[in-house]
């Protein structure tokens, strides 16, 4: 089975199906959830979503990088990056139904 890409539209559809709000309002709420998470991270705050995972902002110091094409050294300025730490439950869900499936094509329960 080909791998699909799930997008905002699918999340809106899920909210629409499960909650019973209009499509427009479902879309606005999906957007708002993402906006609140983004705003929080932008302030440098950690976002912990139980049974899903947490988003953490990390500060990186300056380091020397290299242009892979030319090999010239270039300084990489200090920056903030965001990392996602999946919860144990999420990791379990992803590996459920993987019993000896060498293709790595995981199926949900």
């Amino acid at each position: 089975m080909a791998e699909r890409t799930v997008t905002r539209a699918d999340l809106c559809e899920a909210v629409y199906q499960k909650i019973g709000l209009s499509r427009t309002e479902s879309a606005a709420l999906v957007e708002l959830v993402l906006k609140e998470i983004t705003d929080c991270l932008e302030r440098g705050e950690t976002v912990k979503l139980s049974s899903f995972g947490s988003f953490v902002v990390r500060k990186k110091g300056q380091r020397v990088g290299r242009n892979p094409k030319t090999g010239t050294e270039v300084p990489i300025s200090p920056r903030r990056v965001m990392v996602f730490k999946p919860s144990a439950i999420l990791k379990q869900r992803i590996n459920a139904g993987l019993g000896g499936n060498a293709g790595g094509e995981a199926h949900g329960p």
Binding site: R4, V33, G108
Partner: peptide
């Protein structure tokens, strides 16, 4: 519902 949809998608690969 949003988080569940993301988890379900990842569980399908």
């Amino acid at each position: 519902a949003i988080l569940g949809e993301i988890v379900a998608a990842l569980a399908r690969g």
